[in-house]
Design a protein around this nucleic acid. Structure first.
Length: 123
DNA sequence: GTTCTCACA
DNA sequence: TGTGAGGA
């Protein structure tokens, strides 16, 4: 697919998609006319990138982490810088907080629905 | 109509 | 990262 479609499917500005590519976060082939051509798996890749970005990971670090999250899980850690470790720990903790918060609200809403007699949802 | 690259202050 | 120029 071309960049316009990828943009729609991932809800990411075309501008940012080219930016991610410049940062080596995603790759693309080139059509005869020079247009970028993306494989379907890139859609999930971009969503994963957006997810990491949302939690505060800079593209700089995502570029080093992403290869480790690829299909054949290659735990290849070339150069792990101290600041990279620090950033990851911080992000990991922030995610834990977010998960805890979500779990709490998930439970609360489930309880409410059940109490109101509208449940049917698996907890 | 779509995408491309380069570059700005 | 938004925006515009100038091409193909």
């Amino acid at each position: 697919m071309r960049i316009g479609e990828l943009s729609k499917r991932t809800d990411t500005p075309v501008r940012m998609l080219r930016y991610y590519e410049a940062r080596n976060l995603i790759v693309s082939e080139r059509l005869h006319n020079g247009y970028r051509d993306y494989d379907d798996y890139v859609v999930d890749r971009v969503r994963q990138i957006r997810g990491l970005l949302d939690v505060g990971l800079p593209t700089r670090i995502i570029g080093q982490i992403l290869p480790c999250l690829d299909s054949p899980i290659t735990i290849h850690m070339p150069y792990v810088t101290p600041d990279m470790v620090a950033t990851l720990e911080e992000v990991r903790d922030r995610m834990a907080e977010k998960i805890e918060c979500l779990t709490k609200n998930h439970t609360a809403i489930g309880d409410y629905l059940r109490a109101a007699g509208f449940d049917a949802e698996a907890s």
